[in-house]
């Protein structure tokens, strides 16, 4: 059972994980909305080092306002970004 459902407000964590990670710096600490549940996948942080037997992790697509990502964003106010985030990089938004 995935921890989040579409529409839930979340915050992207900064796990300070060394090595191969898939969560770019520019979205860390950002508040986001769950857009869809993508399924459970093996953790790229394990796969990158040859561990193919680690647990699968829920993956979500989240929706972030561009204006929140970039305080000096010059595009339209309703512009958005969507990105995939694994469950262990998400907290419920306070």
């Amino acid at each position: 059972m995935p921890r989040f459902a579409p529409g839930d407000a979340v915050r992207i964590r900064d796990n300070h994980t060394p090595g191969h990670v898939r969560i770019p710096f520019f979205v860390r600490h950002q508040q986001a909305i769950i857009e869809r549940y993508c399924g459970a996948f093996r953790n790229p942080e394990d796969l990158a080092y040859g561990d193919r037997h680690g647990p699968t992790i829920d993956l979500y697509r989240v929706h972030i306002a561009q204006a929140a990502l970039w305080p000096d964003y010059t595009g339209a106010a309703h512009d958005t970004l969507e990105i995939e985030v694994y469950d262990h990089w998400l907290d419920p938004a306070a």
Binding site: I23, T80, L81, E82, E84, V85, Y86
Partner: peptide, 8 residues
């Protein structure tokens, strides 16, 4: 405009 980052 919605940008999709294919990061995973």
């Amino acid at each position: 405009l919605r940008v999709h980052d294919s990061n995973a």
